[in-house]
């Protein structure tokens, strides 16, 4: 279980990151998404299996941005796919991922919901996806306006006459300039394409946004602009799960940071502490930050283990400068860190 109390953390984050004030209620009430023990296994030929995600545990509140960071291949995209019910046929997901229902009905478990529920009531309506490559996400042969209108029709059933207005509103919400609505995707710059894709994601007025590497391949200026846009939607009260390998982008928008290593969340920390002078507590998270070019610029030695052959103990131990005999057993997460010898044990 994640023992770090999100209410406290969010309050802490809100003070420094300018987020909304914490409500003071328990996490079960105001969490948009509540993930417990999410585990995804891929079955491969020959009886092997790949532990893509193990025991992921986190809550995401309204008006909060949680950044999920980690190396490529650490399982963060698989986690996103699991939440959208888009895992391939040979994957098995267990645990729960409860998506709160604003209408007051009970929460939906995204892992057990059938495809019909996911397609008709979840994707687009309650979970908006901001895609990795917006240019590929848009239909190349149709204008942005016609794609927005189509999505408006599909998701909200707005009558024909009101659709044009609804599409323009959606574009405005995503800061997509109205003058560019009648353009085709190839006539848009990378930043505008990203906004068009975000506008599509926002049409259903989903309270949970899922952004899977939304800034890959963009230059720094566009990255900043894209994540600032996302932050705006967070400040309107949506929850954002930002999956990224770009620590600078995470530092810019996130309220909390979850670090994933070899399929496990090894640390969840409030962003100001994580990126601030105190720094993260897990040695891997510290190593990741030290690899940044504006810090020590030294890589974490070695390479992550194979997800098909994870060690019994701590998966990071072979690369860890602090590893001891204790690390042959797997550390349980305590106070948001899964490590036997975290830095700065809480005083």
């Amino acid at each position: 279980m994640n023992a770090a109390d999100p209410t406290v953390l969010r309050a802490l984050a809100a003070v420094t990151a300018g987020g909304p004030p914490a409500t003071g209620r328990g996490r079960a009430d105001d969490a948009v998404l509540s993930v417990r023990d999410l585990t995804v296994r891929f079955r491969l030929r020959g009886g092997r299996s790949v532990a893509a995600v193990s025991d992921a545990d986190f809550d995401l509140g309204a008006g909060e941005c949680l950044a999920l960071v980690g190396e490529s291949g650490c399982g963060k995209s698989v986690l996103a796919s699991a939440l959208l019910g888009l895992l391939p046929g040979n994957a098995e997901a267990s645990g729960t991922a409860l998506l709160a229902d604003p209408s007051g009905a009970g929460p939906t478990d995204l892992l057990t919901a059938d495809e019909k529920t996911l397609a008709r009531t979840v994707r687009g309506r309650r979970v908006g996806l901001v895609p990795q490559s917006p240019a590929a996400h848009l239909t190349p042969v149709r204008t942005v306006r016609s794609q927005l209108e189509e999505t408006v029709r599909a998701l909200t059933g707005t009558p024909r006459r009101a659709r044009r207005k609804a599409a323009e509103d959606a574009a405005e919400r995503a800061a997509f300039p109205g003058g560019h609505l009648d353009r085709y995707p190839h006539e848009l710059s990378g930043g505008l394409a990203q906004r068009a894709a975000t506008a599509l994601a926002l049409i259903g007025d989903a309270r949970l946004l899922l952004a899977d590497e939304p800034t890959t391949g963009l230059d720094r200026e566009l990255v900043d602009r894209t994540v600032d846009e996302l932050r705006r939607h967070v400040d309107e009260g949506r929850g954002l799960l930002l999956i990224t390998h770009d620590l600078a982008a995470a530092a810019r928008v996130a309220d909390r940071v979850a670090v994933m290593y070899a399929g496990r969340i090894v640390e969840i920390a409030p962003a100001p502490r994580f990126f601030g002078p105190t720094g993260p507590r897990h040695p891997y998270a510290r190593g990741l930050l030290d690899a940044l070019p504006d810090r020590a610029f030294t890589p974490v030695p070695g390479m992550p283990p194979e997800l098909s052959a994870l060690p019994d103990g701590c998966a990071f131990a072979p690369r860890c400068p602090l590893a001891t005999d204790l690390c042959a057993t797997r550390p349980e997460p305590r106070a948001g860190v899964a490590c036997h010898h975290p830095e700065h044990p809480r005083a």
Binding site: V69, G70, E71, S72, T216, G217, H245, L247, G287, L288, L289, A291, L292, P293, F297, T298, P299, V300
Partner: peptide, 17 residues
């Protein structure tokens, strides 16, 4: 050419090294 644009911080530092 943008050798590390798709990569995480640690791999970036390792490749540059």
């Amino acid at each position: 050419d943008e050798m590390t644009a798709m990569l995480d911080a640690s791999t970036t530092a390792a490749l540059v090294a």
